[in-house]
Design a protein around this nucleic acid. Structure first.
Lengths: 334, 334
DNA sequence: GGCGGGCGTTGAACCGATTCAGTCTTCCCG
DNA sequence: CGGGAAGACTGAATCGGTTCAACGCCCGCC
């Protein structure tokens, strides 16, 4: 394997100067056609591939963008990542993916690496909002928050209205005749969980005739949902809630599974509404009603805001808030 | 936001030469302690961040690694990606994620970009095996295939023994007393699908008393599974297979849903075995039996092979084949 | 006293693409 | 026929770390 040829060797072979080769690569319209053909032939013959670090060094910025998420294994982030990638690719940018596992130390070290790489910007669902992010901004690297609103003086952000989502779910259940609703979710310290609960609580309070109770969980995964479902099933028929609203679909799937196991019918005995509308919600044995978040859209928009910030000279930070949408399926219809 | 300070300004402030600053950054043990402290203080004061492209240009290789998958939205690839990322991070490398959507043109353009970035190597589940990959190798960029074996003369590869997986599933079903087994999966052009089928067919043929039929699908997702399930349910009780073996869990979830819908009991009327053991398999309303692939392990191993190839001077390409494992759950036990 | 060796530091060359001021042609028009 | 402008191309300076040969210095040893 021969050493990678550089632009000088291409110039030599084509009988032109390096400047011309560079022009062929970057502004081909400036170069006369016969010359351009000769250069392209030389490039093909040598198998020349532009060295991006040299280009970057000269130009000052890279062609990558950092995406920092809590966990790619969560389908929610996966879909966001798809949106980001699609938009980035359209603009010739590559995406560097980082998982933080909700660990501030991992978050910090990833951000340091991204700063060294001079990424065009960072899209992040932050844990430790202020530590490194301020530093990044000071270094001139734009930051866009997603799934959480930031300070509009400092950065752009994209989120979904979780309070509205909670209201949608509760309204649907009340209109379907449910009077005792159980909210399953936690930890409450997560903004999303808290706001979804508050939205539901608001609607229930306004109605007057219904009541909302809470069953806290320690995590937002299927196992925690199963545990919650077991607790619900253990209550005995007369103290069952008539409907359960879960803080996300993973919980809802767990609850569904535990209730079915215990011989309870969904939605006959207990209705269930989840949140996120991940693909598996529709694929559950009893298809789950769920509050849909425009996940890919979230990712695309975040990426677009970032690109806007890098190109506009008089950029004003924006906050985009999407509205969730209720998708009613079998788990909440009688 | 001030322009990013460079190593020269740090040197000036600390009263040393640029060479010394570089040594503090890369081989601190060569620098006397008081000098080192002065330099570190200057770095902190200026908020200096090393410019990785300059470093890369000089050193010749980057600190990133490319991961090219068919679709991040598939939980299988997500878990592989986690494994890759964990290993890469341990070695101070960042991961650039690319989706190909099974489109050779997207694959090619991603590989071109990765080549320009001079990534340390590429991990790929290739569609178009030979086109660009040969070119990459010629440019000296190591390639590791995963979920598919390559030519051991050319590259390392990591895969799971899909024939064995098929044998495990069929053996389990036959031993549970099933005599008419239906294989659901497609397109047959996918190596994985074909081998899983062949493994099952082998066992069935050896047994003699059982029979294996095939219901082809055009894709490996939940919707295709539902369609297949509807077809099966339409057959009428006496011609039902007693067990269904699906080429992956997404199909199995779809089949499960359609059968349940049609009033058939799983596993009472029809048993189901899936493949992959994605997290949602255990969480289905009837927990799915499935053939588990060591997904994170696959990713970690692929990354390790790549690192080995970049560090060892007398590297020999290896092929690692993992053994899948059958996880029996409710969907196939009476 | 002289010599060798180790330690700490220096500073210029280097990596490879981009950019831009400048040169050389050619052609048009008065 | 001369002036001027447009078009095509050149080549050196530049980006910012890294590396390494070379240097100064001090210490210990014969």
């Amino acid at each position: 394997m021969a050493a990678a040829p550089n632009i000088r060797e291409v110039a030599l072979l084509a009988g032109v100067s390096v400047g011309t080769v560079s022009n062929v690569l970057n502004r081909p319209e400036l170069v006369a056609e016969p010359t351009r053909d000769r250069v392209n032939a030389a490039i093909a013959e040598l198998g020349f591939v532009r060295n991006d670090s040299a280009r970057q060094l000269r130009v000052g910025r890279s062609r990558t963008l950092g995406l920092v998420v809590l966990d790619v294994a969560n389908p929610f982030f996966t879909d966001v990542a798809r949106g980001v990638e699609d938009t980035a690719n359209q603009h010739g940018l590559a995406v560097i993916l980082c998982n933080t596992d909700e660990d501030p130390a991992k978050e910090a070290s990833h951000l340091d690496l991204l700063a060294e790489m001079r990424v065009q910007g960072v899209l992040i669902n932050p844990i430790d909002t202020d530590g490194r992010l301020t530093a990044l901004r000071e270094r001139g690297i734009p930051v866009v928050l997603f799934d959480r609103l930031g300070d509009p003086a400092l950065e752009c952000s994209v989120a979904v209205d979780d309070t509205l989502g909670g209201r949608l779910a509760a309204t649907h259940l009340i209109e379907s005749g449910h009077r005792s609703i159980l909210f399953v979710g936690g930890p409450r310290s997560l903004r999303q969980v808290q706001e979804r609960y508050e939205g539901a609580a608001e609607v229930v309070a306004a109605d007057g005739s219904a009541e909302l109770t809470v069953l806290p969980t320690t995590a937002l995964n299927v196992a925690a949902g199963r545990a919650a479902g077991d607790q619900i099933a253990a209550r005995g028929r007369d103290t069952l809630p008539s409907a359960v609203f879960c803080a996300n679909d993973l919980l809802a799937l767990g609850v569904l599974q535990a209730l079915t196991h215990a011989g309870l019918r969904v939605p006959g005995d207990v209705a269930i509404v989840g949140y996120d509308d991940i693909d598996f919600a529709a694929a559950a044995a009893v298809p789950l009603s769920s509050v849909r978040q425009p996940r890919q859209q979230l990712g695309r928009t975040a990426a677009e805001l970032l690109l806007a910030e890098t190109t506009e000279d008089d950029h004003e930070h924006r906050q985009v808030v999407f509205e969730p949408e209720l998708v009613v399926r079998e788990s909440s219809t009688r």
